[in-house]
Write a protein that binds this DNA or RNA. Structure first.
Lengths: 218, 218
DNA sequence: AAATAAAATTAGCCTTACCTAATTTTATTT
DNA sequence: AAATAAAATTAGGTAAGGCTAATTTTATTT
């Protein structure tokens, strides 16, 4: 079993690895965690001894198979708790991360699976990040937004990046849900506003901010 | 804000104080926590400095007003999480304590209150202990069970001490719920079985174990 | 290539929250 | 009251996980 600190390092390395696919250096980890590089070097030794990561000056830090498994389960717990906090306790989108940061470290053989079931096996967390399943697999991570679609192109809504009630109510009003098809008719160069057609209906104009908040599949 | 360890001491002192109303000595705390008395002395100094407890060789350890407040909120969180684990995640009665032991330390200004609301403001936890309200007040703690009732006496069910599905289903079958009136007609001296009348209906016989699992108000 | 800058590492320290062993204080017997 | 037992306390130590400062290694300029 890993300590709280070890888990935070694993999660951090996992995130850095996902974000860039780049070489992960001690300094990068130090920056990400707000820790001193000297502390990071200590922990790299510890996690290497535990066979959760491997470290090579040229390749940087990499998660081993076990490290990846452990990190994935931390992420699973984090994202499930985020769904819980938002959907069941009525927290706002920007309040849930820090609390989930604590909740994710609670270890019990069946807790994550029970929570998963209780929440109805959600595929994505409130930020649109996929939730790893019990077996470690997870849905595709969507990073393209409506703002990335080319004029004339069409796409399908897969997740939201903003889950404020303001935004969600706005979506409701526009009849946009997960799965809704949207066509980009025009992009106003002045302020990057988007003229879109929702499910083939008459054109509507939305802001750039709006476009960047809708994760889509082309 | 208190550390995890400080919280565990506060909770422990609170429990010892409630259990006996006796003088709480360093050794008593050491025994309860499974720690060395020397460690306890250290922590007593620390908590005294933080004005959460007072310590006097004659009177023993006592919680200050603030210490009581803090301890009560830890207990509140613990018991609310127990209800959640049992009612929402389907855990069994004897699995929830240890998990709640971790969950109780998660601090967020509104988490306990939101959880409380989500659970429907329960008065008692699955062990029949009252859950402190946000203002620190809590319902009466019932410690007498059906097995304590004298022959000829009657009582009202207020909580269950055993929340296994076996027991709960048995209660269902007997039409016993919170509030149900029970009259003790006879006590079989051989094995302490109880002959009872539920809501004035025809007599039924239940075991001593059964009687000890029903918390009642005379 | 040499000089300089940046990154990595080592050495040594700090705090928290434990511990053991030794000592002092307080209670309980005889 | 003296002897003994128990409880409380002190002194010093440990492991985890941070830190700073100094040093070494690696990269980047000039």
């Amino acid at each position: 079993m890993n300590t709280l600190s070890e888990e935070n390092y694993l999660k951090c390395i996992y995130r850095l690895w996902q974000d860039k696919g780049q070489k992960i250096s001690p300094t990068a980890i130090a920056d990400a965690l707000g820790n001193n590089p000297a502390s990071v070097v200590d922990m790299i030794r510890k996690l290497t001894d535990k066979q959760l990561i491997s470290y090579d000056k040229k390749k940087g830090v990499e998660l081993t198979a076990q490290g990846q498994k452990d990190a994935t389960m931390i992420v699973r717990r984090h994202r499930l708790w985020e769904v819980f906090l938002l959907e069941k306790l009525g927290y706002h989108w920007d309040e849930i991360h820090d609390i989930a940061e604590d909740l994710e470290h609670i270890k019990d053989a069946t807790l994550a699976d029970r929570l998963d079931k209780f929440l109805g096996f959600p595929e994505y967390d409130p930020h649109g990040d996929p939730i790893p399943k019990a077996n470690g697999k997870m849905a595709k991570r969507y990073s393209t937004t409506l703002a990335d679609v080319k004029v004339g192109g069409s796409c399908r809504v897969v997740a939201v990046r903003d889950t404020t009630s303001q935004f969600l109510q706005y979506l409701q009003k526009l009849s946009i849900n997960i799965g809704t098809k949207i066509q980009l008719l025009e992009k106003i160069t002045f302020d990057n506003s988007l003229v879109i057609s929702i499910n083939g209906e008459e054109p509507k104009t939305v802001s750039q901010k709006f476009g960047e908040s809708l994760l889509i599949d082309m």
